[in-house]
Computed example of a mutant assay.
Amino acid sequence: MAAEPTTPTPITTDLLRGWSLPVPGTDKESRGRTLVVGGTAHTPGAVLLAAEAVLRAGAGKLQVATTEPVAAALAVALPEALVVPLPTTRDGSLDPADAADRVLELAGGVDAVLLGPGFSDVDASRELLEALVPRLEGAAVLDALASAYVTAHRDGLRHLDGRAVLTLNPDELAKTLDVPEDRADDDPVAAARELAEATGSVVLCGGQGKAVAAPDGRTWTCDAGGPGLGVSGSGDVQAGLVAGLLSRGADPAQAACWGGHLHALAGDELAARVGTVGFLAREIAGCVPHLLDHLAGS
């Protein structure tokens, strides 16, 4: 039976201060390990943005698995991470047939896996996740085009027992639900709630404003942020923040609410300092550490 709809709870500073994140430990092991899986030979930047956001959210250790042609360059750009090259198809995507086993090997030692930043081929993305997701056991974030797996397998995340988060924009949310695009734009809370209940996962929908929905019917809204966040790479940063918070020990709904709100507040800060539009996605994550301190009351 579907949960009865409830009035969305606004995400505010007071709300988050009363919903404290796990206390940071004294070393990198205590703040969790994250694996980011994504990219193509043409989109290494998306992986870089997401991976840096994981660390800016306070996660302790980071691994990145991406296409072989760009792995070495990404390792230089991201010296904080272990970067693992994966087999690649002729068109530059991760090879669904050959990459899944290596990803599963890496995923066995982490606290959260982020799947999807930089994916660009729907079929290749779906096939990779079909080989991978049913064998995952821990917390997972499926970002953007990784939702193609959920479109094809509506119950495909149930085995994770509510430990999955879908980070989508309104267009991706509508496609995953197989409904007209304007439906998610007009009522993102209702659309996010529908997908959360259908998949047993938390859904974070980010557009102009954000909506978060949990499988039990709880919903939240965030009115911070602005049009400047509608820029290439912004969603990769948000997904990385959510994954990093999951690794630190936040529960999925908490990670989605905190991650979405941090992303929005960073956008507001950059809009005031740089301009309403024109700031870059690469600038967002750098605002997060002091915002975390502020929201924690430090």
Rank of each mutant, 00 (worst) to 15 (best):
D155K: 14
F119D: 04
R135I: 00
A281Q: 05
P96Q: 04
D293V: 02
P227Q: 09
V70M: 09
D98I: 06
P180N: 13
G108R: 10
A250S: 09
V133D: 03
K61T: 09
A266Y: 13
A3I: 00
V242M: 12
V189Q: 10
S232V: 14
P117E: 11
L78Q: 01
R56D: 10
T7K: 03
A73N: 14
G225N: 13
T219S: 07
E172L: 05
T26G: 07
P85R: 01
P227K: 10
G226C: 08
H294L: 14
T219F: 02
L195G: 00
L280D: 09
A255G: 00
T34H: 02
A196H: 03
G25D: 04
G225W: 11
A97N: 14
G108D: 08
V36G: 01
A296P: 05
P289W: 13
E68V: 07
A99S: 15
D143M: 11
S298H: 12
P170L: 00
E80H: 03
P79C: 00
G156T: 07
A107H: 02
G244S: 13
D251Y: 02
T40G: 14
V288Y: 11
G45K: 13
P79Q: 01
A250N: 04
A164F: 04
E197V: 14
N169T: 01
H153L: 04
R218P: 02
V76S: 08
G58P: 14
L145K: 15
D187K: 08
A59E: 04
E137P: 10
A198L: 07
A3E: 06
P87A: 09
G233H: 11
L16G: 00
L145G: 14
P8V: 00
G109W: 05
L166Q: 01
A285M: 11
A139V: 00
A140C: 14
Q63P: 06
L173A: 06
D111E: 08
D98E: 15
V189W: 05
L157M: 14
H290P: 07
E137H: 14
G260H: 08
A271Q: 12
A57C: 03
K210A: 15
A73I: 13
A57H: 01
G60A: 08
E29Q: 04
A2W: 02
E130L: 10
G200W: 00
E80K: 00
L262G: 12
V83G: 07
L168F: 05
L15H: 06
Q238A: 15
G207W: 08
L49N: 14
L136R: 05
S234L: 03
L177V: 12
V202N: 02
V103M: 04
C257Y: 00
V47S: 12
